[in-house]
Nucleic acid binder design. Structure first.
Lengths: 135, 135
DNA sequence: CTTGACCTTCCAGTAACTGGAAACACTAGA
DNA sequence: TCTAGTGTTTCCAGTTACTGGAAGGTCAAG
């Protein structure tokens, strides 16, 4: 399979597939006589795996780690669970942050009349918390 | 005020203050005879404003826009509200994404025994969804 | 043989900083 | 006054995970 075929099969842009090979996230593919990259089905499976893991927010380095576990027939499921749980905690933390952000900003937006006049609680609220009170 | 004083007052790293001046997000400060940057209170207020806006997730370019509105005594509050509401929508969207991510990953983690055996629904779930079966 | 799609490498740019090197400036103490 | 130590300057490079584009080689169809 040429690179565009494998990219299509894996649901990734051609550039990204090339990039993943370049950084050694997936093994360097064989080359045709004229230098074209030649991928096999195993490469497609790994690329799909990586795409999915990336969609889940795992970093490329975590993907590398997961891919190692994916390849290892003898790894324990505990190893995988540890990484996934860590990621789950990060997601939960991010959710909490977003929530307080949302609440605070929504509060400011609601307080703003949104008319032609210059008074604006949003601007005031962004600046005032620490040093702006006196302008 | 030298750069470290203003950075301390604004709650930003020195490097970041220099960076914000370099990209023209805040005006280029006056220089001492020996070339040291010399900031005033107005600069501190603007830097605090930017820091807060960044904490709210506004991009640097949005900060530039907000700072323009912040500086403009005659802008309407509607202008500000428009930007803030857009950001609020983005936050809400990000929250929805994170939620489905969380649910899906939590489901996989719960299904995993996390023991010494190699069977792992997380690994299987990451690889299987799209292309391994029939896509 | 030519056209057009596909492939190659390499360089640069994105966002928003951050780290580090080399050199100059300032301040306090001996 | 010299010196040590810290602060500041500029500039370059690296970060993350790609993405866009240029210049040029390859392949299949007509």
């Amino acid at each position: 399979m040429n690179i565009s075929a494998v990219a299509g099969a894996a649901g990734l842009p051609v550039k990204t597939v090339r990039y993943y090979s370049d950084i050694g996230l997936v093994p360097a593919p064989a080359r045709s006589a004229s230098g074209y990259r030649s991928y096999d089905d195993a490469a497609v499976r790994k690329l799909v795996f990586v795409r999915r893991a990336r969609e889940f927010g795992f970093s490329v380095e975590e993907c590398r780690e997961l891919l190692g576990l994916y390849e290892d027939r003898y790894r324990s499921s505990a190893d995988v669970k540890r990484i996934a749980t860590r990621r789950l905690d990060e997601i939960a933390e991010k959710q909490r942050e977003l929530q307080s952000l949302h609440d605070e900003l929504a509060h400011l937006v609601e307080a703003c009349r949104g008319d032609h006049r210059p008074d604006c609680p949003i601007i005031d609220g962004l600046g005032a918390r620490h040093a702006l009170a006196s302008e």
